[in-house]
Design a protein around this nucleic acid. Sequence first.
DNA 1: CGATAGACCTGTTTGC
DNA 2: TGCAAACAGGTCTATC
Length: 268
Amino acid sequence: MPELPEVEVVRQSLEPLLLNQTIKALEVFYQGAFKSAVSKELPLNKKIIAIKRRGKYLFMILGGKGVIVVHLRMTGKLIYRETDRPTKHDHVRLTLDRGYLYYNDVRKFGGLVYYATEDEAMQALKHLGKEPFDESLTASYLFDCAKNKKRPLKSFLLDQAVIAGIGNIYADEILFQAKLSPLKPCSLVSPEEWESVISAMRDILGEAIALGGSSIKDYIDALGKAGTYQNRHKVYGMAGEACKVCNTMLLKTKIGGRTSVYCPNCQK
DNA sequence: CGATAGACCTGTTTGC
DNA sequence: TGCAAACAGGTCTATC
Protein backbone atom coordinates (compact mmCIF):
# COMPACT_ATOMS: atom_id res chain seq x y z
CA MET A 1 0.00 0.00 0.00
CA PRO A 2 1.88 2.56 1.55
CA GLU A 3 3.48 5.87 1.08
CA LEU A 4 3.66 8.47 3.82
CA PRO A 5 -0.07 9.36 3.87
CA GLU A 6 -1.18 5.74 4.12
CA VAL A 7 1.38 4.96 6.83
CA GLU A 8 0.30 8.05 8.77
CA VAL A 9 -3.38 7.06 8.51
CA VAL A 10 -2.52 3.59 9.80
CA ARG A 11 -0.60 5.20 12.67
CA GLN A 12 -3.53 7.43 13.55
CA SER A 13 -6.02 4.57 13.41
CA LEU A 14 -3.76 2.27 15.44
CA GLU A 15 -2.97 4.76 18.19
CA PRO A 16 -6.24 4.71 20.15
CA LEU A 17 -6.58 0.96 19.65
CA LEU A 18 -3.15 -0.11 20.88
CA LEU A 19 -2.13 2.46 23.46
CA ASN A 20 -1.63 0.96 26.92
CA GLN A 21 -2.26 -2.58 25.73
CA THR A 22 0.29 -5.21 26.69
CA ILE A 23 1.71 -7.77 24.27
CA LYS A 24 0.75 -11.16 25.68
CA ALA A 25 1.94 -13.28 22.77
CA LEU A 26 3.68 -12.87 19.44
CA GLU A 27 3.45 -15.64 16.85
CA VAL A 28 5.32 -15.72 13.55
CA PHE A 29 3.78 -17.73 10.71
CA TYR A 30 6.23 -16.59 8.02
CA GLN A 31 9.78 -16.23 9.29
CA GLY A 32 10.70 -13.42 6.91
CA ALA A 33 8.09 -11.15 8.47
CA PHE A 34 9.66 -10.84 11.92
CA LYS A 35 13.25 -10.22 12.90
CA SER A 36 14.78 -9.50 16.26
CA ALA A 37 17.73 -7.14 15.95
CA VAL A 38 18.87 -7.64 19.51
CA SER A 39 18.48 -11.16 20.71
CA LYS A 40 16.22 -14.11 20.21
CA GLU A 41 13.89 -12.60 22.77
CA LEU A 42 10.37 -11.63 21.83
CA PRO A 43 8.86 -8.36 23.04
CA LEU A 44 6.50 -10.07 25.49
CA ASN A 45 4.70 -8.57 28.48
CA LYS A 46 5.58 -5.08 27.32
CA LYS A 47 3.09 -2.25 27.14
CA ILE A 48 2.66 -0.22 23.94
CA ILE A 49 3.15 3.38 25.06
CA ALA A 50 3.33 5.27 21.76
CA ILE A 51 2.96 4.84 18.00
CA LYS A 52 5.22 7.00 15.86
CA ARG A 53 6.07 7.35 12.19
CA ARG A 54 9.29 8.19 10.37
CA GLY A 55 9.09 8.26 6.58
CA LYS A 56 7.25 5.09 5.61
CA TYR A 57 8.20 3.30 8.85
CA LEU A 58 5.96 2.82 11.87
CA PHE A 59 7.34 2.57 15.40
CA MET A 60 5.51 0.82 18.22
CA ILE A 61 7.28 2.16 21.31
CA LEU A 62 7.25 -0.27 24.22
CA GLY A 63 7.45 0.45 27.93
CA GLY A 64 10.63 -0.71 29.63
CA LYS A 65 12.47 0.04 26.37
CA GLY A 66 12.12 -1.81 23.12
CA VAL A 67 10.59 -0.81 19.79
CA ILE A 68 8.88 -2.75 17.05
CA VAL A 69 9.52 -1.10 13.68
CA VAL A 70 7.14 -1.98 10.85
CA HIS A 71 7.53 -1.41 7.12
CA LEU A 72 4.60 -2.32 4.88
CA ARG A 73 6.49 -2.21 1.57
CA MET A 74 3.97 -2.85 -1.22
CA THR A 75 1.10 -4.82 0.26
CA GLY A 76 1.64 -4.99 4.02
CA LYS A 77 -1.27 -4.26 6.36
CA LEU A 78 -1.68 -3.95 10.10
CA ILE A 79 -5.17 -5.04 11.07
CA TYR A 80 -6.68 -4.86 14.54
CA ARG A 81 -9.58 -7.03 15.67
CA GLU A 82 -11.19 -7.53 19.05
CA THR A 83 -11.75 -11.20 18.35
CA ASP A 84 -9.34 -13.57 16.66
CA ARG A 85 -10.04 -14.09 12.98
CA PRO A 86 -7.06 -15.46 11.03
CA THR A 87 -6.91 -14.52 7.35
CA LYS A 88 -4.92 -15.67 4.34
CA HIS A 89 -1.47 -14.03 4.24
CA ASP A 90 -1.34 -13.30 7.99
CA HIS A 91 2.36 -13.59 8.87
CA VAL A 92 2.49 -12.29 12.45
CA ARG A 93 -0.14 -12.17 15.19
CA LEU A 94 0.22 -10.12 18.37
CA THR A 95 -2.14 -11.08 21.15
CA LEU A 96 -2.96 -8.04 23.30
CA ASP A 97 -5.06 -7.55 26.44
CA ARG A 98 -8.23 -6.71 24.55
CA GLY A 99 -7.63 -7.80 20.97
CA TYR A 100 -5.30 -8.98 18.22
CA LEU A 101 -3.00 -7.17 15.82
CA TYR A 102 -2.19 -8.97 12.56
CA TYR A 103 0.61 -8.26 10.13
CA ASN A 104 -0.79 -9.38 6.78
CA ASP A 105 1.16 -9.10 3.53
CA VAL A 106 0.33 -10.78 0.22
CA ARG A 107 3.76 -10.22 -1.31
CA LYS A 108 5.82 -10.85 1.86
CA PHE A 109 8.12 -7.88 1.21
CA GLY A 110 7.53 -6.07 4.47
CA GLY A 111 7.60 -7.00 8.12
CA LEU A 112 8.45 -6.21 11.73
CA VAL A 113 11.83 -5.70 13.34
CA TYR A 114 12.32 -5.65 17.11
CA TYR A 115 15.01 -3.32 18.51
CA ALA A 116 16.20 -3.02 22.10
CA THR A 117 15.77 0.75 22.22
CA GLU A 118 14.32 3.61 20.23
CA ASP A 119 17.84 4.99 19.74
CA GLU A 120 18.93 1.73 18.19
CA ALA A 121 15.96 1.76 15.83
CA MET A 122 16.66 5.36 14.80
CA GLN A 123 20.29 4.42 14.24
CA ALA A 124 19.21 1.70 11.83
CA LEU A 125 17.22 4.30 9.89
CA LYS A 126 19.75 7.12 10.05
CA HIS A 127 20.03 7.19 6.26
CA LEU A 128 16.51 8.63 6.00
CA GLY A 129 16.23 12.22 4.83
CA LYS A 130 13.96 14.99 6.05
CA GLU A 131 10.30 14.64 6.92
CA PRO A 132 8.05 16.44 4.41
CA PHE A 133 6.36 18.54 7.10
CA ASP A 134 9.56 19.38 9.00
CA GLU A 135 10.32 23.06 8.74
CA SER A 136 13.99 22.32 8.15
CA LEU A 137 12.97 20.96 4.75
CA THR A 138 13.47 24.12 2.72
CA ALA A 139 14.02 25.10 -0.90
CA SER A 140 17.67 25.81 -0.18
CA TYR A 141 18.14 22.34 1.38
CA LEU A 142 16.71 20.72 -1.76
CA PHE A 143 18.63 23.03 -4.07
CA ASP A 144 21.88 22.12 -2.31
CA CYS A 145 21.14 18.39 -2.39
CA ALA A 146 20.30 18.54 -6.09
CA LYS A 147 22.72 21.05 -7.53
CA ASN A 148 25.47 18.62 -8.54
CA LYS A 149 23.23 15.78 -9.70
CA LYS A 150 21.91 15.11 -13.15
CA ARG A 151 19.39 12.50 -12.08
CA PRO A 152 15.77 13.04 -13.08
CA LEU A 153 13.67 15.08 -10.67
CA LYS A 154 11.31 12.13 -10.14
CA SER A 155 14.15 9.86 -8.99
CA PHE A 156 15.33 12.60 -6.65
CA LEU A 157 11.88 12.87 -5.03
CA LEU A 158 11.74 9.10 -4.57
CA ASP A 159 15.14 9.05 -2.85
CA GLN A 160 14.35 8.35 0.81
CA ALA A 161 17.74 9.74 1.83
CA VAL A 162 16.65 13.19 0.62
CA ILE A 163 12.97 13.28 1.66
CA ALA A 164 11.48 10.38 3.61
CA GLY A 165 8.02 9.22 2.66
CA ILE A 166 7.28 10.04 -0.99
CA GLY A 167 6.51 7.06 -3.24
CA ASN A 168 5.47 6.53 -6.83
CA ILE A 169 1.90 7.82 -6.62
CA TYR A 170 2.62 11.02 -4.74
CA ALA A 171 5.81 11.81 -6.68
CA ASP A 172 3.78 11.93 -9.90
CA GLU A 173 0.97 13.94 -8.30
CA ILE A 174 3.36 16.43 -6.69
CA LEU A 175 5.24 17.05 -9.95
CA PHE A 176 1.99 17.59 -11.83
CA GLN A 177 0.82 20.19 -9.32
CA ALA A 178 4.26 21.85 -9.31
CA LYS A 179 4.18 21.90 -13.15
CA LEU A 180 7.62 20.30 -13.41
CA SER A 181 8.65 17.46 -15.70
CA PRO A 182 9.64 14.24 -13.90
CA LEU A 183 12.48 13.97 -16.44
CA LYS A 184 14.01 17.38 -15.72
CA PRO A 185 17.58 17.03 -14.39
CA CYS A 186 17.31 17.98 -10.73
CA SER A 187 20.36 20.26 -10.94
CA LEU A 188 18.35 22.55 -13.23
CA VAL A 189 15.52 23.11 -10.76
CA SER A 190 15.63 26.68 -9.43
CA PRO A 191 15.06 27.68 -5.79
CA GLU A 192 11.68 29.12 -6.79
CA GLU A 193 10.75 25.84 -8.42
CA TRP A 194 11.82 23.96 -5.28
CA GLU A 195 9.44 26.20 -3.36
CA SER A 196 6.60 25.06 -5.57
CA VAL A 197 7.66 21.42 -5.13
CA ILE A 198 7.53 21.87 -1.34
CA SER A 199 4.16 23.55 -1.33
CA ALA A 200 2.67 20.98 -3.73
CA MET A 201 4.12 18.20 -1.59
CA ARG A 202 2.62 19.54 1.66
CA ASP A 203 -0.69 20.27 -0.01
CA ILE A 204 -1.04 16.84 -1.53
CA LEU A 205 0.30 14.77 1.37
CA GLY A 206 -1.83 16.75 3.84
CA GLU A 207 -4.97 16.34 1.76
CA ALA A 208 -4.25 12.63 1.25
CA ILE A 209 -3.88 12.08 5.01
CA ALA A 210 -7.14 13.96 5.63
CA LEU A 211 -8.91 11.70 3.13
CA GLY A 212 -7.56 8.47 4.58
CA GLY A 213 -4.87 7.85 1.93
CA SER A 214 -5.12 6.34 -1.56
CA SER A 215 -6.73 2.91 -1.81
CA ILE A 216 -5.66 1.51 -5.19
CA LYS A 217 -5.95 -2.19 -4.57
CA ASP A 218 -5.53 -3.39 -1.07
CA TYR A 219 -4.61 -0.48 1.11
CA ILE A 220 -6.78 -0.13 4.20
CA ASP A 221 -6.29 1.25 7.70
CA ALA A 222 -6.12 -0.75 10.93
CA LEU A 223 -9.88 -1.23 11.05
CA GLY A 224 -10.22 -2.16 7.40
CA LYS A 225 -11.40 1.22 6.16
CA ALA A 226 -10.34 2.35 2.65
CA GLY A 227 -9.13 5.85 1.82
CA THR A 228 -10.57 8.10 -0.90
CA TYR A 229 -7.64 10.17 -2.12
CA GLN A 230 -7.42 7.98 -5.25
CA ASN A 231 -10.44 9.94 -6.47
CA ARG A 232 -8.31 13.10 -6.43
CA HIS A 233 -5.44 11.67 -8.47
CA LYS A 234 -4.74 13.80 -11.54
CA VAL A 235 -2.05 11.72 -13.29
CA TYR A 236 -1.17 8.48 -11.46
CA GLY A 237 -2.60 5.51 -13.36
CA MET A 238 -4.15 7.80 -16.00
CA ALA A 239 -1.76 7.51 -18.95
CA GLY A 240 -3.57 8.02 -22.24
CA GLU A 241 -6.30 10.10 -20.62
CA ALA A 242 -6.69 13.83 -21.17
CA CYS A 243 -4.91 16.23 -18.81
CA LYS A 244 -7.50 17.78 -16.48
CA VAL A 245 -5.93 21.19 -17.01
CA CYS A 246 -5.09 21.42 -20.73
CA ASN A 247 -6.63 18.32 -22.31
CA THR A 248 -3.29 17.10 -23.72
CA MET A 249 -2.92 13.32 -23.60
CA LEU A 250 -0.98 12.19 -20.50
CA LEU A 251 2.20 10.28 -21.32
CA LYS A 252 3.71 7.25 -19.60
CA THR A 253 7.41 6.50 -19.30
CA LYS A 254 9.80 4.58 -17.04
CA ILE A 255 12.06 6.56 -14.73
CA GLY A 256 14.37 4.65 -12.44
CA GLY A 257 12.38 1.53 -13.20
CA ARG A 258 9.09 3.07 -12.04
CA THR A 259 6.14 3.88 -14.26
CA SER A 260 5.68 7.63 -14.42
CA VAL A 261 2.75 9.58 -15.84
CA TYR A 262 2.87 13.28 -16.68
CA CYS A 263 1.45 16.00 -18.91
CA PRO A 264 4.01 16.97 -21.57
CA ASN A 265 2.32 20.35 -21.96
CA CYS A 266 1.79 21.45 -18.34
CA GLN A 267 5.02 20.00 -16.94
CA LYS A 268 8.28 21.53 -18.14
C1' DC B 1 29.05 8.54 -8.24
C1' DG B 2 24.96 7.01 -11.27
C1' DA B 3 21.86 4.54 -13.87
C1' DT B 4 19.88 -0.04 -14.67
C1' DA B 5 18.58 -4.67 -13.87
C1' DG B 6 17.47 -8.20 -10.83
C1' DA B 7 15.76 -10.07 -6.47
C1' DC B 8 12.30 -10.56 -3.07
C1' DC B 9 6.70 -12.57 -3.53
C1' DT B 10 1.70 -13.21 -4.96
C1' DG B 11 -2.28 -11.72 -7.38
C1' DT B 12 -4.56 -9.30 -11.08
C1' DT B 13 -4.75 -7.37 -15.59
C1' DT B 14 -3.51 -7.32 -20.40
C1' DG B 15 -2.53 -9.15 -24.88
C1' DC B 16 -2.36 -12.55 -28.29
C1' DT C 1 -11.66 -19.07 -23.56
C1' DG C 2 -6.85 -19.93 -22.27
C1' DC C 3 -2.44 -19.07 -21.20
C1' DA C 4 1.68 -16.34 -20.66
C1' DA C 5 3.60 -12.08 -20.01
C1' DA C 6 3.44 -7.75 -17.82
C1' DC C 7 2.60 -5.12 -13.99
C1' DA C 8 1.75 -3.53 -8.98
C1' DG C 9 2.13 1.47 -3.13
C1' DG C 10 9.17 -0.43 -2.03
C1' DT C 11 13.88 -1.10 -1.15
C1' DC C 12 18.25 -3.60 -1.38
C1' DT C 13 22.18 -5.58 -4.03
C1' DA C 14 25.05 -6.39 -7.84
C1' DT C 15 27.02 -4.83 -12.12
C1' DC C 16 28.71 -1.87 -15.72
